[in-house]
């Protein structure tokens, strides 16, 4: 049986080297360029590989964010997805995982009504917010099983999947019923580059667009219950105290002085 695969992607700044406006405590966004979150490329690739594994399957990319980030789902089409859906939400704080996961879950419900979804894939985390909890939260909102840190989808049919979960001390092999949400890690595959054919398809694709209102999300939800944890302010990391250089006439003297310092500071 073919699978209906959804893959969630995020448009993120192409650099991590961002500044903070010291007056407002907010990240300076002027001049930043955006592209698909690098960790999501693995999720998109896995969606396309699943599609290739199970004939007749479809992969649909989904993202939520400001209108300007719609290109990220087209990029997913260029990378092999069949289609996409986009939640155009200028008011959504895309670095608030609680609100973002709720919006994505509402959109997935809509897609699920059109055609039952089997699996939803996510990247490990976003390169800007870094939380890595959106996939697991979407699973919770949908009341579907959720597995994070997935490094292999071993077997899959429309009812269940056996996956490998990378843990700190090894690998867990887990069988889950479907539908389920799986958050991938980069060991799962090696993403391909967008193809020319894919880029053409991306340009031509008709991408359904929903607003938060279409998903039943009110402005007061965003400012209320969905803002359960918010960033009050940001700052540059504290600078490290100035270091000392170990000097010496010979390598042996330097080695001795270094070991002296490490013992003195009770580090070894």
């Amino acid at each position: 049986m073919p699978l209906n695969i959804i893959v969630c992607v995020k448009n993120t700044p192409t650099t991590n080297n961002v500044g903070v406006d010291s007056a407002t405590g907010k990240v300076k966004s002027a001049g930043l360029t955006y592209a698909m979150n690098p960790f999501d490329e693995y999720a998109v690739e896995e969606a396309v590989r699943l599609k290739e594994r199970v004939p007749g399957s479809t992969a649909t990319a989904l993202s939520a964010g400001p209108e300007s980030s719609e290109g990220v789902v087209r990029d997913a089409i260029a990378r092999g997805c069949d289609g996409a859906a986009f939640v155009s939400a200028a008011d959504l704080d895309v670095n608030n995982p609680f609100a973002t996961s709720y919006a994505l879950a509402q959109a997935i419900k809509k897609l699920n009504e059109q055609k039952p979804v089997n699996v939803v894939l996510f990247g490990k985390n976003s390169s800007d917010g870094n939380s890595g909890v959106v996939g697991a939260e979407v699973a919770a909102w949908l009341d579907w099983p959720g597995i994070i840190s997935v490094k292999k989808i071993d077997s899959i049919d429309e009812k269940s999947a056996t996956v490998w979960r990378m843990m700190e001390d090894g690998t867990d092999v887990i069988k889950t019923s479907l539908p389920a949400c799986l958050s991938t890690v980069k060991e799962i595959n090696e993403p391909r580059l967008p193809s020319l054919k894919g880029k053409m398809a991306a340009k031509k694709a008709a991408v359904p667009k929903w607003t938060l209102a279409d998903l039943g999300i009110k402005p007061e939800d965003l400012s209320g219950a969905l803002s359960a944890a918010v960033v009050a302010r940001s700052s540059p990391p504290p600078s490290r105290p100035a270091g000392v250089r170990v000097e010496g006439a010979s390598a042996a003297e330097k080695a001795r002085k270094l070991v002296d310092l490490l013992i003195e500071r009770k580090l070894i």
Binding site: P13, N16, N17, V18, V20, V27, N95, S127, D128, G129, N130, A229, V230, V231, A232, R233, S234, S235, P236, P237, P238
Partner: peptide, 12 residues
Amino acid sequence: GQYSGNIVSEVE
């Protein structure tokens, strides 16, 4: 940390 530790954010 956000942006790979390039900024530190206070969450309330």
